[in-house]
Write a protein that binds this DNA or RNA. Sequence first.
DNA 1: CCCGTTCTTGACCAATCGGTCCAGCTCGTC
DNA 2: GACGAGCTGGACCGATTGGTCAAGAACGGG
Lengths: 222, 222
Amino acid sequence: MGATTEDPKQRTTMPRPRTFDEDDVIDRARKAFAETGFAGTSLDTLLEATGLARQSLYNAFGGKKELFMRAFLSDTAEAVEAVESVRHGEDSPITRIRRQLVKVAVEHGEAKAAPSLFTKAAVELSSHDPEVASAVATAFDVMSRHYAACIAEAQGAGEIDAGADADSLGTYFCAVIEGMSTLGGAGVPRATLLDIGLTSLTAVPVTDLGREHLGTGEGDWS
Amino acid sequence: MGATTEDPKQRTTMPRPRTFDEDDVIDRARKAFAETGFAGTSLDTLLEATGLARQSLYNAFGGKKELFMRAFLSDTAEAVEAVESVRHGEDSPITRIRRQLVKVAVEHGEAKAAPSLFTKAAVELSSHDPEVASAVATAFDVMSRHYAACIAEAQGAGEIDAGADADSLGTYFCAVIEGMSTLGGAGVPRATLLDIGLTSLTAVPVTDLGREHLGTGEGDWS
DNA sequence: CCCGTTCTTGACCAATCGGTCCAGCTCGTC
DNA sequence: GACGAGCTGGACCGATTGGTCAAGAACGGG
């Protein structure tokens, strides 16, 4: 696999360059797989979606499954990265978590929106494919920890009751977001998703101080 | 479709009886589809799982898609029915909701457990198949209302703060359960799921009276 | 300007897909 | 016990599946 990224200057002769951008192909493939799943997306559909020819896909990625894994891992990494921003934001921790919940509601509440590839792959494959399963488990774990750390930070700042179980709340928010993603893909409207997200926040025992800090940074979500 | 359930006494001659039970076949098909999804389950796999012959499946149900819908609708009805019991239980409303959450955690937290066909179909098909989408939406709506009614009842009994939004909490619990189902299918252990379910209950503003009633009917979940 | 290397193109492959056809079987009725 | 109903089992279908092969095109270095 590494052959595609080797330094071309060390070569004696220069091969024909690719007419496509690998990351771009992965991104298109991600959308295609997110729409119809792994088994439901044929190679032909994939070729049309990515624009490249059969053999090109084959010797650039190795096959359908390999391309799927690239797309899936890419989506997973992006999902984790999105949660990182929650961890390292600037404003108060609870506000950051709330913003994340709102963001998920907005993203998955569009009428056309399908579930993320992460969710789709988790449901479709993780019970049979160990590679997918472990990637899902790891991502889930990392996200949980980010949320938990965020809550612990808020506890340190006195915004959340010190008696609350940060770890439990962390995994809990992962589950809520997973549920929102699933429901959003099933056609549940944005407003309902938003309601769910905000209701889930109720499980966090916010202190009076925290309540003061909350209510800022609402953001616009048309 | 009704031909299979017509009254045989009205016939002049009596045909060869089926060697299989229709409901039993649907149940086996449900398991098969729940394991590998719609696109991922071939007719041959289905035939092996149900035990019946190609043509038998065809003229008893109509085809792969039709059998899938029967299985999917059956699973959906069962899921809704399970929530009904929450609505009409005997002990205090919050205890009933908690029992449901625990039940979901236990059922989906088994190591071998795959997501329910309801969840799987919702994720895989509801964005492209209107029939699946509407069934999912309806089921989601009915479940939400059951939970909401249960909470409203608890409010009437003074177990839950009257200021709480019962409808929001209803849809919220649906989302949490959906998330638990997804996570369970992805391999998250039972204890974690249980933790999620119990944490989600924290979003309900239980009164002092309610707290008294809670803590009973724990049930055994090995 | 020829070289080697890699990419592209389209034909091609066996396997499998969901679905159909038909011959034979098994019933209750007459 | 012959009949016609519907069920059964296996052969069979064209279409599509994921994957491969071979011939040619594009490129920079020599």
